[in-house]
Design a protein around this nucleic acid. Structure first.
Lengths: 187, 187
DNA sequence: AACGATATATATCGGTCCGCTATATCAATG
DNA sequence: CATTGATATAGCGGACCGATATATATCGTT
């Protein structure tokens, strides 16, 4: 599942510029399960255009900045359907926050507390994004994934709010109390 | 958060070979939030050894295959604590399964059903892994992350089992019945 | 009206990481 | 006693990330 297929998929829903594709991958519901950077998007769009799978239309009304709007072609739709039959790879999750919490014993407790606050705030942001009006799905597949996203982030936020105080207390106890040899093992 | 820091972190818990580090990133609880391949692990270990942050001990009792066991040094622990103070990046999730479900309208319904079965089975595997004996956390941070992993995958599995039948029905209806766009609006 | 901050928009570059492959030994299975 | 699967190291090419450069538009503030 490369960036070209990703772009083609998004363009099959709606024509867009490279910038707008990137925005969907940061703000939109697709950000739940995939991402890409400009460094991958622009070369992918150039390649797709060269292969005739997408068409370009340059918008430059006045002396304005170029805006290249890409639109999927019939050949593009055919190629997309074929691409989507490939075997999907396993889910890949990369969370530096969870990584740091896992090794919290090596980090000052005050710093861990700060990270917990930010992580919880981030989860509230994502839930707000998923609840926004412009995020309403319009078919069965999108509805399924959107609902799963809501369920996941709701469950995560519930867990974080319920268990963050306990983690803070444990770390403070280890740091403030007698040197190690407490209820929780120090590393 | 590069692979070198990842290796150093795991070695701070337990000495291991490159192969064993990789195994932890596939089977172990760390697989919940990070991963790495041999193509990244071996060069990282070589670099860490060259910098003196880890020490190598070659096990080759008889004429057996070399097994290089890496152990973190005091300098390595210092460097690790410093590395863990860096700003964490946002979580990155890449799920080709959810991607395909999102664009399920472009895929044969039978194929989507097959993917749903595999995705659900995969979630059961992860839950079994997290419930295994050799996965029991031994400090507050690990307990926190382990509990979050259990909560997340439980919530995901619950949603999948509850809503997969509805998705199957919607896709079958669209394919078999009249070509109604949005006809399956009912949740 | 000027200013600064933010959003829109395209593009490139270096370095990191992934996926695949090759190689080799050992244990277990039939 | 062959074949599979687990253990184990290593390298390559290509894909991808993160940062940066450049330029205009918009919007709120002073």
């Amino acid at each position: 599942m490369d960036v070209a297929t990703l772009c083609l998929s998004l363009l099959s829903l709606k024509s867009a510029s490279g910038y707008e594709i990137r925005k969907q991958l940061v703000d939109g519901p697709v950000s739940l399960f995939h991402g890409a950077n400009y460094g991958s998007i622009y070369p992918a769009l150039a390649r797709l255009a060269a292969e005739g799978l997408i068409a370009v239309e340059v918008h430059a009304p006045d002396g304005r900045l170029d805006k290249k709007v890409y639109r999927i072609t019939p050949e593009g739709r055919t190629a997309l359907r074929r691409s989507l039959l490939a075997e999907p790879a396993h889910d890949r999750i990369r969370s530096e926050f969870l990584f740091l919490f896992f090794f919290a014993a090596l980090i000052p407790p005050a710093r861990v507390g700060e990270l917990l606050d930010r992580y919880i705030a981030r989860h509230r942001e994502v839930l707000a994004m998923l609840s926004a009006e412009d995020c309403v799905p319009d078919n069965a597949g999108q509805r399924f994934v959107h609902g799963l996203g809501l369920a996941i982030f709701r469950a995560r936020l519930d867990y974080l709010e319920a268990n963050a105080p306990g983690l803070r207390a444990s770390l403070d106890a280890e740091a403030g109390g007698a040197p190690t040899r407490g209820g929780a093992k120090a590393v």
